[in-house]
Design a protein around this nucleic acid. Structure first.
Lengths: 191, 191
DNA sequence: TTGTTCGGTGAATATATATTCATTTATATT
DNA sequence: AATATAAATGAATATATATTCACCGAACAA
């Protein structure tokens, strides 16, 4: 019938948006720059996304789903507790470390004028599996009996800041030896 | 000679900027809105600040200095180690909790197109006192012998995320009973 | 009291940026 | 091959926003 939608083009637009947000922050994001970086015309952006707001919200949801899939793998959860905990903790850190543009984007979305509460809520549902891991640890009396949200905030905050300081050049995280940062995480929540 | 500079006006401009950044993020910050919120004319903004970039950088440095003063008080450092640690930890958390607009601004400055490296570096120097606290803990063999930057990133990341989740309504921090979150912090770094 | 100097003003201007749309191009269907 | 359909284009347009500036008025000095 006609020229089909080009999914690769959507990926290029996503990648361009991420790159530019990492370089210049959310405030510096311009549609013309996105188009240039993605090697499409500005008008093409509006073929795939209604406007800038929708581009940003669609990308946010896409990233949250992708990341959750990466660090909450079903096969990792089917293990002795401490091993599950370590795998999820390490995967979360490695995702942040390997895709810093994605973390930067997610962090900034939260405080942007583009945030749509329903999109935010949908993304938050993805965390349920993480709560479940901690609940299992508590039922096995290996984890402090505190609110799992409190524990999650503490654990994720630590990881995100470690990665931030890594990219600021203040510390060096070695992906082949994460024992030291893991000991901080584990000792803080273990019973 | 003439009408003197009005320091209160600068404070109003600062406060207005913070309020708007909290509400709409860095990307939504408009000079016209700042002027309206501060109850001055747009032109007045340019009497006190060369342009938007300077307004933001001046405010950032002002906030970092103010916050460092709040949570690194000399009299708190002159105590038995664990008490110093608790005081600094708690003050850092309470500053974030009591002035969430300030933390939001600082967080976003870091990834904005307005960031000026020399300003950022100047602000980072303020952390030296925090390193010193941890170094004392290590010399007294009370703190794990890890890089103090690693420890600081972990501790501050935890606090900032806890406060963020508090304001998102996911957890509730009670300023009169911070024992649970403190136990997470202390157990993670103690020897 | 008067003159002088800046602070203060906000409409006007310049600039930057999002979005549209007439036109062209590519693909699938016939 | 011819046709239909939708993607793709990017200059033109609309919009939004930063910044300027001619004028006003408050404070101080003489």
């Amino acid at each position: 019938m006609a020229k089909p939608r080009d999914e690769q083009k959507i990926e290029r637009i996503h990648a361009a948006t991420l790159k530019l947000v990492q370089q210049q922050g959310f405030g510096g994001l311009k549609m013309a720059d996105v188009a240039k970086e993605a090697q499409v015309a500005t008008g093409t952006l509006y073929v795939y996304f209604k406007d800038k707001v929708e581009l940003i919200n669609a990308l946010y949801l896409h990233l949250k789903r992708k990341q959750a899939k990466h660090y909450l793998k079903p096969e990792d959860l089917d293990r002795p507790f401490k091993m599950s905990f370590r795998l999820v903790w390490e995967n979360f850190l490695l995702v942040s470390l390997d895709f810093p543009e994605e973390s930067a984007f997610i962090e900034q979305y939260y405080r942007s004028p583009f945030l749509r509460p329903e999109v935010r809520n949908e993304a938050d549902l993805l965390l349920q599996a993480a709560h479940d891991v901690l609940l299992r640890g508590q039922s096995e009396e290996l984890i402090k009996p505190l609110d799992t949200s409190l524990l999650l905030a503490h654990l994720s905050g630590s990881i995100l800041e470690l990665v931030k300081w890594h990219y600021a050049g203040i510390i060096q995280l070695d992906r082949t030896n994460l024992d030291a940062p893991f000991s901080l995480a584990w000792d803080s929540v273990k019973r």
